[in-house]
Amino acid sequence: MALRGPKVWLWRWRRNPLKRRADRVEAWVVLGVWTLTVLTGVLAGTSVSRSVEDGLARERVEWRPLVARLAERAPGTATENARVSRAEQVWATARWTAADGSRRSGQLRVPAGSAAGAPVTVWTDSEGRQVTRPVTASQARVRALLIGGVAGLCGAAVPLIAGRALRGRLECRRIDQWDAEWARFGPMWGRTAG
């Protein structure tokens, strides 16, 4: 690891008679890596975000609610209160007819103690398979932004890590060059003209 002096902004781009070719190469590498990091992060984030939002919008269009009937009495006891909390909901088997006319069945969350034959809502895809309730447009936007943000960060990490590795190699090479020059010119400093 090289010794570093005080931070000077844009030092790589300033004129300096001591600046070597390796310093100029490193300046362009840093600029290229940061540009590539930002572009990769933005492009990955926006494309993944759009893809997720489009997929969730497609689900909202294609998935349909159907009325299903409970095949059995739901476990637990029914409460007198008409509002049932999530904690008072249990899994029970329900049956329904898909859009193509086929009979289907599956497990649904229903109020505890619901009677057999009670109507419940089941969400199905275009092929009649049971799915979860589709997310709303605002929930889809939040989910797309979060997933897109993570994808953007992961995409930006690739050129950033590669750039750090390249800069490390350049620095090792520069240190080796300094060592070679020091070995060549260092002994001359002890001579005096006389």
Score class of each variant (00 low, 15 high):
Gly5Thr: 08
Trp9Asp: 14
Trp9Lys: 12
Trp13Lys: 09
Arg15Pro: 10
Arg15Ser: 12
Asn16Glu: 11
Leu18Tyr: 13
Leu18Arg: 15
Lys19Glu: 06
Lys19Trp: 02
Lys19Thr: 06
Lys19Tyr: 03
Ala22Leu: 13
Ala22Gly: 14
Ala22Trp: 10
Trp28Phe: 12
Trp28Ser: 08
Trp28Gln: 10
Leu31Gln: 04
Gly32Asn: 09
Val33Trp: 09
Thr35Lys: 01
Thr37Tyr: 02
Thr37Glu: 10
Val38Pro: 06
Val38His: 07
Leu43His: 06
Ala44Gly: 04
Ala44Pro: 04
Ser47Leu: 03
Val48Cys: 01
Val52Gln: 05
Asp54Thr: 12
Asp54Gln: 11
Ala57Thr: 09
Glu59Gln: 14
Glu62Asn: 10
Glu62Cys: 04
Trp63Glu: 12
Trp63Lys: 13
Pro65Met: 02
Pro65Tyr: 01
Leu66Lys: 04
Val67Pro: 02
Ala68Thr: 06
Arg73Val: 10
Gly76Leu: 08
Gly76Glu: 04
Ala78Ser: 11
Thr79Arg: 13
Val84Arg: 09
Ala87Trp: 03
Gln89Gly: 05
Gln89Phe: 02
Val90Ile: 04
Ala99Phe: 04
Gly101Ala: 00
Arg104Leu: 04
Gly106Arg: 03
Leu108Lys: 00
Ala116Glu: 14
Gly117Cys: 03
Gly117Arg: 06
Val120Pro: 06
Val120Met: 08
Val120Gln: 12
Val122Arg: 00
Trp123Lys: 00
Glu127Gln: 12
Arg129Pro: 00
Arg129Gly: 08
Gln130Phe: 00
Thr132Gly: 14
Thr132Phe: 06
Pro134Ser: 03
Ser138Lys: 08
Gln139Asp: 09
Gln139Lys: 08
Ala140Asp: 00
Arg141Tyr: 06
Arg141Gln: 11
Arg143Ala: 05
Ala144Asp: 04
Leu145Gly: 15
Leu145Asp: 12
Ile147Ser: 11
Gly149Ala: 01
Gly149Asn: 03
Ala151Thr: 08
Gly152Arg: 01
Leu153Tyr: 00
Val158Lys: 01
Ile161Met: 07
Ala162Ser: 09
Arg164Phe: 09
Arg169Cys: 01
Glu171Pro: 02
Arg174Gly: 09
Ile175Gly: 07
Ile175Ser: 11
Asp176Gly: 12
Gln177Thr: 11
Asp179Lys: 12
Ala180Met: 08
Glu181Val: 11
Trp182Cys: 09
Arg184Met: 06
Phe185Ala: 13
Gly186Phe: 02
Gly186Asp: 05
Trp189Pro: 04
Gly190Trp: 10
Arg191Glu: 15
Thr192Pro: 11
Ala193Asp: 13
Gly194Leu: 13
